[in-house]
Design a protein around this nucleic acid. Structure first.
Lengths: 188, 188
DNA sequence: CTAGTTGACGTCAGTCACTGACACTTCCGT
DNA sequence: ACGGAAGTGTCAGTGACTGACGTCAACTAG
């Protein structure tokens, strides 16, 4: 049957999303996920490193898109370049939104999952740092820019999840303005 | 013997730091740590939630100091307030530096530990957000300021670990200037 | 078309992090 | 002295995760 484990992997992803949502993360076992996906527990661990990782697939794609965006960006300062990369990833965020909503609800119920989410975000930031360095930006500056950019994006994303009549790109620009206001010490 | 588990807890901390350093994090078991500390494994888990947590004690103290600093700061804008809080914690960082160095070396060897470190940092940031909100700062602004402040501090801390003739407080001020330059789009 | 190769999967046995329940001892206030 | 609270030991158990080995289907070279 299997020459590419892609289908099994996809079934595992869906099974986990379902079960974590229905019974809660801690209450479901990896064996249950595997059973619903029609494979054994061992196969689960061949596809995903641990019980949490199944919720964080597709991270590589996001990272690649943003890395490419940084590599091919025009010169306009490190922070602006980082924000361009987030803007370039907007289609991915839009496409993945339905799943992201379910996932976020699950993550909010478990500190262990929140921890992994932070780690993923940090890993993404490191990738951006590396991409900035490829453009000749010094390490400390690159890291500061990447982290500031992540803060800006999180703020934009938060607004997007809220009322948000605006699109993500506009919200990113707006959040950048907010950050500039903060650094200029205007009272918020 | 035991009326306050403080000594056992301290012995567990030292034992873990030693063993993680000698054999590596993954190669040491919680049973080993407990044995070296002269207690049972069960007692370990009464003091620390899991195998990693033993490396991240004293985080509460840091959080309290920074929270207090924010509560009693004078008005000068959210980001400046956050940076005051980091500055207020400088003595803690100085005092804890020897242990912090050993801990950092261990953390660098294990993704699981890095994950926990990020979670701790995120939890601290959330505490700062709450403290800012107590001062009447709106949630999104507070979170953006807290995250930007964390980025600034990390950059200062990085410089401190490096050559760093300067003190941490001066490096924080310097990093704040760097962030301002980034938001003003000056090429870095 | 066949034989050898490769990659995904199943099976099994084992380790270790972590938990609940219960009994015991020491400390402290009354 | 007495009773309760807090820290600990003991024991049994669950579940995440791993290594080793065998199998079978899909591809590939000849």
């Amino acid at each position: 049957m299997p020459r590419s484990g892609a289908e099994a992997r996809a079934r595992l992803r869906e099974a986990a999303l379902d079960l974590y949502g229905e019974q809660g993360y801690e209450a479901t076992t990896t064996a249950e996920i595997a059973a619903r996906a029609g494979v054994t527990e061992r196969t689960y661990f061949r596809h995903f490193a641990d019980k949490r990782e199944v919720l964080f697939d597709g991270e590589a794609e996001l990272r690649d898109v943003m890395r490419e965006a940084i590599a091919s960006a025009r010169d306009e300062g490190p922070l602006a370049t980082v924000l361009r990369a987030y803007a370039a990833a907007v289609p991915l965020f839009v496409a993945g939104r339905p799943v992201a909503v379910r996932r976020a609800a699950i993550i909010a119920t478990s500190p262990a999952l929140a921890e992994r989410a932070h780690a993923k975000s940090a890993s993404l930031t490191e990738a951006l740092v590396a991409a900035l360095r490829e453009r000749g930006i010094a390490e400390p500056t690159a890291r500061l820019a990447a982290r500031a950019g992540a803060a800006v994006f999180e703020r934009a994303s938060q607004a997007w999840d809220g009322e948000s009549a605006a699109g993500l790109e506009a919200l990113i620009a707006r959040a950048e303005v907010e950050l500039r206001a903060l650094t200029e010490n205007r009272l918020g």
